[in-house]
Nucleic acid binder design. Structure first.
Length: 526
RNA sequence: GCCCCCAUCGUCUAGUGGCCUAGGACAUAGCCCUCUCAAGGCUAAGACAGGGGUCCGAAUCCCCUUGGGGGUACCA
């Protein structure tokens, strides 16, 4: 639905994370939709920092969040780090603006000083509940004049400001996702807008910031739908034009409809898919020696994906489809397509549950599409971090990546193939496989020895040539390939599974292949 | 309690009154390919929450029930 406003003003959307130290997947989805909407309409996306009640070290807690957005390619035109014409973008630095707004509301009689105590409020609420009547604050400790205030303060009471909400009529607004909304004002309470310490509350700060920063479209999670009337009351009281609203469904837990939370990790780990993806990531992180605090290193946190070697486009593409679809066919979107095709009208109304397995499927797809050199480029830092000497290995890495093919699903999977870099005499063997394919197979050793002789003369020592050489040999001997396959693989890699055999030989090279065969032969009788 | 929002395969979804014996994707199962493991190909199984209406005709519109979620905070 287009409104006149869309044509007259440039679209401005915002996302306002609080500096918590990590970027939550649900938050990213909201941010992504805001970003997409702004980009589509040639507008601006603003990253404002909601640090109203954050601790001291805001910069440190903010860093991973900004980093996450950068990694995903969600850039912002104004806000943290970049500044902009409506600075400051940190709520902690905008206190005067809020105070001015509170004063204006007070002056207009749309808010009042209240001197009730928590105990008194609770008593009123409970009395109303008991009689099963809708509760409204009695306004008994409302102070209209300076004299009233002085009187209450003399009693030792502390005042804070709350909204004088209407108790009749209805608040109507349009939501771009949910359509026309209508709520009775009587449902609203006299919400507080300041604390006794003078600081301001969310509803107030939010409205003021959105106005000051000329936000045209408020695109946010569904839990704010019920907050909208009170925010409209504030905005109208202050004489602000109303933004357009769009309330996104929330992202739900794996396999459930409950809202995804950062605190329920234990529960998510009971979900088989979630567990699997989590463990896959942890295995990689372990090889890298990364710190893995479960609260910050898990599939609900964006950092997880970067550290393990996912592709940002996979994460973004998956998130795009979480609650939004273009049609019944298109699944893969380039950046530009997302921007061109995105629209709020196609956002779903129902919560969508977070399915890591599907995210993983997107990752596989994008990884497969990556050109070899790009894959190598992405994999190299992981080898380095894991302590594989990078210098002379560079050529080998490309050969490994090529031979690995689709087996490398995330960049960190390269660490599964580090055995090519371990010195031959330090190779670890899967004993079960060794027993089965070599030690207990009487034919294995003699065959390996003959093959070694053959390989010693092989030239060139390349995949295709080796394949022909060995196949011809086996045919001449009247042997099936299976006879050689398992023993040779175990001898070369110590494992029962791996790349194509000829690729493996070629990557190791003649000398190391022969050495490994010899070493394997040597340990048969140990 | 009160108010608001939501409801299609296990999951993400297409579907805006006839094109629906409900389409796609992920996951699952089977088969094929194959030097192991992957990848790939083919096939299968799998949903309109329930009940009432409206209409010639309903997944689509209305009502009720059920279930889920949110708000009702000096949280955001």
């Amino acid at each position: 639905m287009q409104t006149t406003q869309d044509f007259l003003m440039t679209v401005r959307t915002r996302f306002a994370p609080s500096p918590t130290g990590y970027l939550h997947i649900g938050g990213v989805r909201t941010a992504l939709f805001n970003w997409l909407f702004a980009r589509k309409h040639g507008g601006q996306f603003i990253l404002r920092i909601d640090d109203t009640d954050a601790g001291r070290n805001i910069e440190a807690a903010l860093a991973p969040i900004l980093h996450g957005f950068k990694w995903l390619g969600i850039d912002w035109d104004e806000g943290a780090e970049v500044g902009g014409p409506y600075a400051p973008y940190y709520q902690s630095q905008r206190l005067e603006r809020y105070q001015a707004a509170v004063k204006a509301l007070l002056d207009k009689g749309l808010a009042y000083w209240d001197y009730s105590t928590e105990v008194e409020r609770k008593a009123e609420r409970e009395a109303a509940d008991k009689e099963k009547r809708p509760h409204h604050y009695s306004r008994r400790w409302l102070a209209e004049t300076a004299a009233d205030r002085a009187k209450f303060e003399a009693e030792g009471r502390q005042g804070s400001v709350r909204l004088k909400m209407p108790r009749e009529g209805t608040c109507e607004f349009n939501d771009h996702i949910r359509g026309p909304m209508k709520v009775a004002w009587a449902q609203e309470q006299d919400h507080f807008i300041t604390r006794t310490d003078g600081s301001c509350l969310y509803n107030l700060a939010n409205v003021v910031d959105d106005f000051d920063m000329k936000i045209t479209h408020v695109i946010r999670a569904e839990e704010h739908l019920s907050n909208t009337p009170r925010q409209i009351f504030i905005a109208q009281g202050l004489g602000y034009p109303l933004p357009e609203y769009a309330h996104l469904p929330f992202v739900a837990e794996p396999g459930s409809k409950r809202k995804l939370s950062k605190r329920e990790l234990e529960k998510y780990l009971k979900n088989a898919d979630f567990k699997k993806v989590n463990e896959h990531g942890r295995a990689i992180a372990e090889k890298l020696g990364l710190e893995m605090k479960p609260e910050t290193f898990n599939p609900v946190i964006v950092d997880f994906y970067e550290q393990v070697g996912y592709l940002p486009q996979a994460v973004v593409n998956y998130l795009l489809l979480l609650g939004w679809a273009y049609d019944d066919k298109k699944e893969w979107f380039t950046r530009q397509e997302m921007i061109d095709l995105f629209s709020l009208e196609k956002v779903n109304k129902a919560a969508a549950s977070f399915d890591v397995k599907k995210l993983f499927a997107f990752q596989e797809h994008y990884m497969q599409e990556l050109p070899l050199e790009e894959k190598v480029r992405r994999v190299l830092p992981f080898l380095e971090k894991a302590g594989v000497p990078s210098g002379q290995a560079a050529g080998t890495v490309a050969a490994i990546v090529r031979a690995a093919g689709d087996r490398i699903k995330v960049a960190g999977d390269i660490l599964d193939y580090c055995d090519f870099f371990t010195p031959d005499d330090r190779l670890k063997y899967d004993e079960k496989a060794f027993d089965k394919s070599i030690r207990n197979d009487a034919n294995a050793l003699p065959l390996l020895k003959r093959v070694a002789d053959l390989l010693a003369k092989a030239e060139p020592f390349e995949t295709a040539a080796l394949e022909k050489l060995l196949h011809d040999f086996l045919q001449a001997e009247g042997l099936k390939f299976n006879r050689l396959h398992a023993p040779l693989r175990v001898a070369l890699t110590g494992k029962a599974v791996g790349f194509g055999l000829f690729d493996t030989l070629a990557i190791l090279g003649k000398e190391r292949s022969l050495t490994r065969i010899e070493l394997a032969a040597g340990r048969v009788n140990v």
